[in-house]
Design a protein around this nucleic acid. Structure first.
Lengths: 128, 128
DNA sequence: GCTTTACTCAACCGCATGGTTGAACACGAG
DNA sequence: CTCGTGTTCAACCATGCGGTTGAGTAAAGC
């Protein structure tokens, strides 16, 4: 209904399909033609062509021309878009979690917390 | 048909909807009830409830109980799953690109080119 | 105990999506 | 020009999804 007007929706939507994710995974190793990509799956070539169209419109791949073949190339730029979006909210959520954890420490008068095994080294200086 | 059996598909699919992404964004700032979440959108409360169910089944949020209210909490763990998947193939694709760039350097006899050149726009040198 | 508040479940609708098959297009080779 | 290969387009079908409304459930309040 929403016709996927924004870029991020198209990218997430494209990657929501396991077949398309597998294609992306294989394309990360190198360019491939439609037939080559279609080989492992037991769907028709037309279905694969459709999948590629979705990936292309999401900006994940680009297609050139080589005689009759249409080599598909993975375009890594869009991944940054996703990563940025994800990291942004992941960090916020984790910071919130740590603040909550610190608050619980104070409320319970705990001395040594062993429950946080986070790998990031950010200081929670909200001890006020 | 595929019923989204795998986790990653559910997560990507859940985040493919702009309304749900907006909810996640707002939940990153703090927990909220269904009504609070529904307020900004001009859809019914039931629609928002459905969205939350999708987010919950994707493992992105969890819901507890506070009297009649159902506070929604953002669960940051799943983001790691996505980030790992994305980064894996993004890096592969970028490495390939850099190798190609290095190869072009050698072919063209370019000297002293830093392979770390990441301009955001790359011209497609269709040199045959 | 009935009402109010907060929310979910159920049934339904319209459209998008993933799949199919058959035809058409693009290009290289005879 | 014709043929073969590689790929896309078009029509169609089944299912899923986001939306709706109406009913049902859970807990607080009078």
């Amino acid at each position: 209904m929403v016709e996927h007007e924004d870029r991020l929706s198209r990218v997430f939507s494209a990657l929501a399909d396991p077949t398309r994710r597998d294609m992306v995974a294989r394309l990360a190793a190198g360019d491939a033609t439609v037939s080559e990509l279609a080989a492992p799956y037991d769907v028709s070539l037309q279905a694969v062509s459709k999948h590629l169209k979705v990936l292309e419109e999401a900006g994940l791949v680009s297609r050139s021309r080589d005689a009759q073949r249409r080599p598909v190339h993975l375009d890594a730029e869009v991944f940054d878009l996703m990563t940025k979006w994800i990291e942004r909210y992941r960090q916020q959520a984790e910071e919130r979690y740590q603040r909550l954890d610190a608050l619980l420490d104070r409320l319970q008068g705990r001395a040594g917390t062993d429950s946080n095994d986070n790998t990031d080294e950010q200081s929670k200086g909200a001890a006020g």
